[in-house]
């Protein structure tokens, strides 16, 4: 732990150490439980800055891959990174650490909601929380949209998706199989 932070070995694909399945589980559980409002930032802090299990470049690469894949990013990240450390069992350990403990907490919240959602004070507090949560999602969208400005085509695709799904409320399983090939085709055409 102590002397490892100066010289990082140049891009080695396999990690120079062997965390146990329990280590993997514990790291992902702690990342997950501290991750309010986005677990990824915490994953970076724990894996890159605190434990130095990977370099910033490796993390960025892993993050890019997780976004490239469908499904929840951080779950993808846990599966891919767990596999790199210890194969299928490593994947399972990371996945269970990431989802197990918060799953218990969120289920308790679900039970409480089922019982107390109609209590007046709870209703009012939830109205405030919902407003805040949707405001924060809008901020995330705004942050993510910044790189779009570089390309009018990207803006058109994003707006088209927004209108089709958000305004027209067309079903995603119908829209995406048409829209995605179109968007990828246009990306190819622009870079030809």
């Amino acid at each position: 732990m102590s002397a490892t932070h100066d010289a990082q070995p140049a891009a080695s694909s396999s990690p120079p150490f062997n965390p146990s399945l329990l280590d993997i589980f514990v790291v992902f559980a702690s990342v997950s439980l501290s991750g309010f409002g986005g677990v990824l930032a915490w994953a970076r802090r724990a894996l890159v800055e605190r434990r130095k299990w990977m370099t910033p470049e490796e993390f960025n690469d892993l993050f890019a891959l997780s976004q490239f894949l469908p499904g929840p990013n951080i779950v993808n990240l846990s599966v891919v990174y767990g596999a790199r450390l210890r194969g299928p069992a490593g994947s399972a350990a990371a996945f269970c650490g990431l989802l197990g403990p918060p799953l218990i907490i969120v289920t308790i919240f679900g039970i409480l909601y089922a019982h107390f959602a109609d209590v007046d004070g709870v209703r009012r507090a939830l109205a405030g929380l919902s407003a805040a949560a949707s405001g924060m999602l809008i901020a995330t969208v705004a942050k993510m949209s910044q790189p779009l400005r570089a390309s009018w085509l990207a803006v058109v695709i994003a707006l088209g998706t927004f209108v089709a799904i958000g305004v027209m409320r067309w079903p995603m399983p119908v829209v995406l199989p048409l829209l995605l090939p179109m968007a990828i085709g246009l990306a190819w055409w622009v870079r030809r």
């Binding site: 949209s145 790189p147 085509l153 695709i157 994003a158 707006l159 998706t161 799904i165 958000g166 995605l180």
Partner: peptide, 12 residues
């Protein structure tokens, strides 16, 4: 190609 689609979905 997927980037702008995912932002559009998130905006929705």
């Amino acid at each position: 190609g997927m980037g702008p689609v995912s932002i559009g979905l998130l905006a929705a």
